[in-house]
C-alpha cells in the first residue's frame, strides 16, 4: 500500500513524539531517583518467633550470638511474646542465612516469620513490587544508578 507524503510525515511525527516522551520519562525517573536518598537502604528487617518461653538471660545469650553473625546490626527482643527482630545488611548476608546460623547455635524452638503474598499486599510501607511503575523504575535505576 503506497502511503502519501502527508501520512508518512504524520507517522514519523507521532513516532518521534512517543520516542521523545519515553526519553523524557526515563530522564525523569533517573533524576527523581537520584534525588531520593534512603539512609540504611540495604538494611533488611527480619523476625524470629520463639515457640517456647524465653527468659531474660536466654534472650541475652541469643542477642549476643546473633550480633556476632556477619551483617547483623541492631536487634529488639519482645520477651513477653518471644519475638526477636533483627536487621541484616542485605549486601553482606541474607536473613535466612542469619536465621539458620543462629538456630544452629541455640537449643530453643523457633520459626522464621515469613511474609505471605497476602500480607505483602497490605500495610506500610507502600511498596507494590508487582506494579508496572515499580518494575519500570527499578529497571531504569539498575541501568543508570
Amino acid at each position: 500500500m503506497k502511503l502519501s507524503k502527508n501520512t508518512k510525515r504524520v507517522g514519523v511525527g507521532l513516532l518521534a513524539f512517543f520516542v521523545l516522551s519515553f526519553v523524557v520519562l526515563v530522564i525523569h525517573v533517573v533524576m527523581v531517583s537520584k534525588s531520593i536518598k534512603y539512609d540504611n537502604a540495604s538494611l533488611q528487617l527480619a523476625r524470629i518467633d520463639f515457640k517456647q518461653p524465653i527468659d531474660s538471660s536466654q534472650a541475652r545469650e541469643i542477642n549476643t550470638k546473633i550480633r556476632k553473625i556477619d551483617g547483623v546490626g541492631n536487634t529488639h527482643f519482645n520477651l513477653k511474646d518471644g519475638i526477636l527482630i533483627y536487621a541484616v545488611d542485605s549486601k553482606k548476608n541474607s536473613d535466612q542465612a542469619v536465621y539458620e546460623k543462629l538456630i544452629a547455635q541455640v537449643p530453643y524452638k523457633a520459626e522464621r516469620f515469613l511474609v505471605t503474598e497476602e500480607m505483602a499486599a497490605k500495610g506500610c510501607p507502600a511498596m507494590d513490587k508487582s506494579s508496572f511503575a515499580y518494575q519500570f523504575s527499578n529497571t531504569v535505576n539498575k541501568i543508570f544508578n
Binding site: D39, N40, A41, L43, F113, K142
Partner: peptide
C-alpha cells in the same frame, strides 16, 4: 515489628527484597 498488636499493619517491613534493593525498613 515485634509488637503483635501493631505489626499486622506493617508486615511489608519484613518482606525480603534482595541485595541491592531498597528495603521496606529504609
Amino acid at each position: 515489628a515485634g509488637d503483635p498488636e501493631l505489626n499486622g499493619f506493617f508486615t511489608v517491613l519484613l518482606t525480603e527484597v534482595g541485595a541491592g534493593n531498597t528495603t521496606g525498613f529504609a
